[in-house]
C-alpha cells in the first residue's frame, strides 16, 4: 500500500517563541524552523512499515511557503520516496489543509495517511480528524502502536486514562503520539540522494480549494508572566510553607 505523510514546517521546538510587539503573531523572521516533531514520527512510522514490507511507497506532502521544500527534503532524506509541495503563503487553517489533503488522497489513493497529532505552533490537534471526516475513513488518533494486518489496521491510542486499542478498516487515518517511535536521523549519503528524489510543486488552485481563513486573529499577546518566588534553605522551612498553604497539617 501507499502511505501519505503530511509534514509541517514549524518553529524549531528548542526555541522559545517571541510574540511580536504589534500583537499580530509570533515572530518567525530569521528563526530556525524544522519539521514538526510529531511529523518526524509519522515519517519514521511510514518508513518502518515499508521496511516490514507493508508499505510500497511513501509520499510526503506539505502545505506552506516555498521554504517548506526543506522540510520535504528532510522527509525524503529520512526515506520518503517522493514529495508534493502545495505552495501557499499566509495562514492555512486545519480545515483548508484537510481539504487539500483530501484532494491529494483522492489522487494518490493511499492505504494510510499518517499525520502528527498536533503541530507544536498552533496546537490545534484537528487536521487528521478533519481529513478522516472528509474522506469518510476511520481514524486512529494519538497512536503509540500501529499494526497493519490485511485490510485492518490496529491502532493503540494514548488516552487520558491509559491506552486503548481500536481496529480500523483500511484505508484509514493515523495520527502520531510521541512514544510511537524514535525517528532516525538522515545520513549524509541519504541527504545527498534526497536532492534528486522527485518533488512536485502545486498550488491550492490546482485542487480547487479555497484557502480563505474562517478565523480572524484579533491579537496575539504574551501570557501573564510568573515571577520567580523564593528559595527555602531547608526541608523544615518547606514544611512550614506547606502548612501555611493549608495542604499539610
Amino acid at each position: 500500500m501507499k502511505i501519505l505523510v503530511p509534514v509541517k514546517r514549524v518553529l524549531d521546538y528548542n526555541l522559545k517563541p517571541r510574540v511580536k510587539a504589534d500583537g499580530s503573531g509570533v515572530d518567525l523572521a530569521n528563526v530556525k524552523q524544522s519539521m514538526n516533531p510529531f511529523d518526524e514520527i509519522a515519517v519514521e512510522e511510514a518508513i518502518r512499515l515499508k521496511e516490514k514490507g507493508v508499505a510500497t511507497e511513501i509520499v510526503a506532502v506539505s502545505i506552506g511557503e516555498a521554504k517548506a521544500q526543506d522540510t520535504l527534503r528532510t522527509a525524503l532524506a529520512m526515506g520518503a520516496d517522493r514529495a508534493i509541495l502545495i505552495v501557499h503563503d499566509g495562514v492555512a487553517e486545519p480545515l483548508a489543509i484537510a481539504k487539500l489533503l483530501k484532494a491529494v488522497a483522492d489522487e494518490e489513493q493511499p492505504g494510510l495517511v499518517i499525520l502528527g497529532k498536533q503541530a507544536i505552533d498552533d496546537d490545534s490537534n484537528q487536521t487528521g480528524q478533519m481529513l478522516a471526516a472528509l474522506l469518510g475513513w476511520a481514524q486512529g488518533t494519538f497512536a503509540s502502536k500501529v499494526e497493519v494486518a490485511g485490510d485492518t489496521v490496529n491502532v493503540t491510542r494514548e488516552v487520558d486514562g491509559g491506552l486503548e486499542t481500536v481496529a480500523l478498516k483500511v484505508p484509514a487515518i493515523v495520527t502520531t503520539d510521541l512514544r510511537l517511535n524514535e525517528p532516525r536521523y538522515a545520513s549524509l549519503p541519504n541527504i545527498m540522494k534526497a536532492k534528486s528524489k522527485p518533488l512536485a510543486q502545486k498550488t491550492p488552485a490546482d485542487y480547487g480549494v479555497d484557502m480563505a481563513p474562517r478565523l480572524e486573529t484579533l491579537a496575539v499577546t504574551e501570557p501573564p508572566k510568573r515571577q520567580a518566588g523564593i528559595k527555602v534553605a531547608s526541608v523544615d522551612e518547606l514544611v512550614e510553607k506547606l502548612k501555611a498553604l493549608g495542604v499539610a497539617a
Binding site: 518553529l11 522559545k16 517563541p17 510574540v19 503573531g25 509570533v26 487553517e93 486545519p94 480545515l95 507544536i120 505552533d121 498552533d122 496546537d123 490545534s124 490537534n125 484537528q126 478533519m130 481563513p213 474562517r214 478565523l215 480572524e216 486573529t217 484579533l218 491579537a219 496575539v220 499577546t221 504574551e222 501570557p223
Partner: peptide, 29 residues
C-alpha cells in the same frame, strides 16, 4: 473551522486560546 482549547469566551464569536504551548495567547474571531 474548530476553535481548539479555549480558555475564555470573549463574545458570541470571539475566544481566547493558547498557542505555541502557551507561550503566546491568541484572541480569535
Amino acid at each position: 473551522m474548530q476553535v481548539s482549547d479555549i480558555i475564555a469566551v470573549d463574545g458570541p464569536d470571539t475566544f481566547t486560546r493558547p498557542i505555541y504551548a502557551g507561550n503566546a495567547i491568541a484572541r480569535v474571531k
